[in-house]
Nucleic acid binder design. Structure first.
Lengths: 193, 193
DNA sequence: GTCTATAGATGGATAGAC
DNA sequence: GTCTATCCATCTATAGAC
């Protein structure tokens, strides 16, 4: 046959990727399937050849997005813990990240809606987060610190995005960066003792 | 006249209070005005005697909710910084807070939708947050630390809520509590030097 | 597999009776 | 000020033509 079975899987993946930016930008509940499919140049009818429901799209979005986030961490060129952290703080706690949710981490924009999603979606979320924490644990030497670091970053972007001006957004970002750099460096040093 | 002008303001306030739980639980976009008014025993027609639009309700919800959050902080009985923090960590980073968004802080549940709201709503949000940071600054001695503390707490609840099991939620909460207590105590000590 | 068309429900918001 | 009724848009999801 002309189109092998994996062609359908590829199309499905393409729909997920095209939907992700719109969902992160506008929110899951507020963004209709029509609009999501428009981004891929198809109509909403085509959507249901690839997904059983809108909820299934959200579930599929979770591993896609969290894998991208882990890849970003992996691309950090530093090996020394403090330098690695400094680089990560600059990358995540960035004003561009605040102002462009469509290109950023799914957690600040869709975290609350994942929390309201069905059990299957949250199960996938947990599994993908565990992978991320495992990776971070190897950098930071401690699982507690890994969870805390993630929560801090997510909260900082969430709060900064709710601010009305760039100045206020920078206030939030810079405060977080200053405290985190100082505090984490000291925490890492205490582990090394 | 039988009903003084403030009676209307009181009714408006009552509608806000009755809506708040449903909005935090179900999300702003996903919860209709019909359902919100049902909680007050009126129909959606009555809504528009008190609010010009659904967006105006969200804007009114922000000062109401953030004042409640500040009041909770104020009720902390401790004066010594470390004891104050410990109490606050137990209060906010609590499994009940994770599992009952309708009774908790608006930031983890509605923060992302405030970030997508209009400029007027975000302006009010900023003003109310400044008040909270000012109050926290007096407890922690540092504005950067106040912002960071808030972001950390919000992120922790957001991430914990997205977890599928109570065990996983506790993992997130406990990790944050352990690191925060240790790290903040050390940071406070460094300020005292 | 994607299209058009549409069902069926619900969304925000308005009009007019009381 | 609140009600019922309704407008109109949009939502998720399905049916049938191609």
């Amino acid at each position: 046959m002309r189109y092998p079975p994996e062609h359908k899987a590829e199309k499905r993946q393409a729909l997920i990727e095209a939907s992700s930016a719109l969902l992160k930008q506008g929110g899951y509940a507020a963004t209709g399937i029509d609009k999501l499919m428009e981004a891929s140049g198809v109509t909403s009818g085509a959507f249901y050849s690839h997904f059983g429901s809108k909820a299934e799209l959200l579930q599929a979005l979770v591993p896609h997005e969290l894998e991208l986030s882990r890849n970003a961490w992996e691309s950090n060129p530093h090996t020394e813990p403090t330098a690695w952290l400094e680089f990560e703080l600059e990358r995540y706690l960035n004003i561009k990240h605040v102002r462009h949710p469509e290109a950023g981490c799914m957690l600040p924009s869709l975290g609350a809606e994942i929390a309201r999603a069905n059990a299957a979606t949250r199960k996938v979320f947990e599994e993908e987060m565990e992978k991320g924490v495992l990776m971070l644990e190897q950098k930071l030497g401690n699982a507690d610190l890994a969870w805390t670091f993630i929560c801090q970053l997510v909260g900082a972007i969430l709060v900064a995005r709710a601010m009305p001006t760039k100045a206020a957004q920078l206030t939030v970002l810079d405060a977080n960066k200053r405290i985190l750099l100082e505090s984490l460096t000291r925490t890492l040093a205490s582990f090394a003792e």
